[in-house]
């Protein structure tokens, strides 16, 4: 390697403690926002993993782009409402087209997802470029997210009470909604994910549950989009749940582990970003991935190290 690229020295205090004490003004809302995104995605992701729909998140997050662009062109401004609605509609349209292709052509789900997300994303890029004069869309934001910017907006004040930046409030409400849906619909979600046949006979509206889940997915992905970008949302959806499956086999505990994973990866990720001076959202995902790898190696249930040990034992 060339000498000019050297790893900065690691200062544990500056990376892991200082952001939350001395620099709380800068990182406080970043932390809250990051946690809300990661926790909402992680909780919902558990169910996507159960239903083998992990990559639907990928499709929805990519289709958000044309939704945003079209909403911008139609409404003529960056108003939160129309942009949000446009992205949501695009996400739902993507899931509907995927379902349609899957049921009405000989293609399987993988091909359907691959075609739909790339087409919609390509349309989004072309529109964004073609109307570049009118749209101010940063390609970096689409991929990296703007976590720092989102959390640095001026806080909303109600009367004399200063609350939080608007994006944080939005994301926190989405997280609350996800939690509420899981608490209220836990049984229906569980049964229809595990065995649609039994669920139907027990009076659960399986298609309705699926549609609701897709709606919730679109909502979460769209709200997380501006913070973490199109691709990293997928990591946020899958990593916490995947880590949890390595640690426990019981769904209720998986929720807890997913939330812990979300919190820990935000903490470590901010540390990583401070240390290396790199983008925030990717750093949080890298930290989450590192936690996953740690669970993979050392997990109590079928961790790699345990498997290795078992094998030697059987052999001897």
């Amino acid at each position: 390697m060339t000498p000019e690229w050297v790893l900065p020295a690691f200062d544990a205090h500056a990376a892991l403690v200082a952001p939350w004490t001395e620099h709380r003004d800068t990182f406080g809302w970043v932390g809250v926002m990051g946690f809300c995104v990661a926790a909402a995605c992680g909780l919902l992701g558990n169910y996507l993993l159960l239903r083998r729909m992990a990559l639907m998140g990928d499709a929805v997050s990519h289709s958000v782009l044309p939704g945003l662009v079209i909403a911008f062109l139609v409404s003529g401004g960056r108003g939160t409402g129309p942009m949000f609605a446009g992205a949501l509609v695009a996400g739902l349209v993507a899931t509907l087209i995927i379902d349609l292709l899957q049921s009405r052509t000989p293609l399987k789900q993988d091909a359907a997802i691959g075609i739909v997300f790339s087409t919609l994303f390509a349309i989004g890029v072309v529109l964004a470029v073609a109307f570049a004069g009118q749209i101010d869309l940063d390609p970096d934001c689409v991929l990296n997210g703007e976590l720092l910017f989102v959390a640095l907006e001026p806080s909303v004040a109600v009367g004399s009470l200063t609350l939080a930046p608007p994006a944080v409030i939005r994301m926190a409400s989405v997280l609350a909604l996800v939690i509420a849906v899981i608490v209220v619909g836990y049984r229906a979600l569980l049964v229809s994910s595990f065995d649609p046949g039994i669920a139907r006979s027990a009076g659960v509206h399986v298609r309705g549950v699926r549609l609701g889940l897709m709606l919730l997915l679109s909502l979460v992905v769209v709200s997380a989009f501006e913070a973490v970008g199109a691709v990293l949302v997928v990591a946020m959806l899958i990593l916490p749940g995947a880590t949890a499956t390595l640690i426990t086999e019981r769904l209720p505990r998986m929720h807890g582990i997913a939330v812990v994973h979300a919190g820990a990866s935000v903490w470590l990720g901010v540390g990583l970003a401070v240390w290396l001076d790199c983008s925030l959202a990717p750093a949080i995902v890298v930290a989450g991935a590192a936690l996953f790898v740690a669970a993979w190696l050392m997990g109590p249930r079928g961790g790699l190290l345990i498997q290795l040990w078992e094998r030697n034992r059987v052999q001897s």
Partner: peptide, 9 residues
Amino acid sequence: LTVAYRRKP
């Protein structure tokens, strides 16, 4: 002949 899958023979 001994074959094990994960931990289980």
